[in-house]
């Protein structure tokens, strides 16, 4: 599994896979960490293709957020489906991430 990644105006935009679960979370976590540490620490994670995520998947984005903030950056989430949003609300993680309806808005929010 390889995360889809590109840079836009110095911001790392990463698209997570359709399923982010225990089987691929370790790989995704390592890749996301490498991307963040190689960049500016300003990251947008696009969840538009993600239809299923378990607690291992949540741990990937939490680790990404911590890595970004350690670099005085941040990690924003974009294009979350209703079901993924329900998961974030259940685990209260919607209170620690900035969540945007679309990727462009998340990129713009970095100014």
């Amino acid at each position: 599994m390889s995360l889809n990644h590109r840079q836009e105006n110095g911001i790392d935009v990463v698209t997570l896979p359709e399923r982010l679960v225990m089987a691929n979370a370790g790989d995704a976590r390592a890749q996301l960490k490498d991307i963040i540490q190689s960049g500016s620490g300003r990251v947008v994670v696009n969840l538009g293709e993600t239809t299923f995520m378990d607690s291992s998947g949540l741990a990937v984005v939490v680790a990404g957020l911590q890595a970004a903030r350690k670099m005085d950056g941040d990690l924003y989430l974009a294009q979350m489906s209703d079901t993924i949003r329900a998961l974030f609300e259940l685990t209260r993680l919607h209170t620690v991430f900035q969540i945007f309806d679309d990727e462009a808005a998340a990129v713009r929010a970095f100014g």
Partner: peptide
Amino acid sequence: EPAATDAAGGRGWQIIRA
């Protein structure tokens, strides 16, 4: 019980019981 929001893990049982 809900995990701390900055915890890396510990959310599985919260999801099961929900």
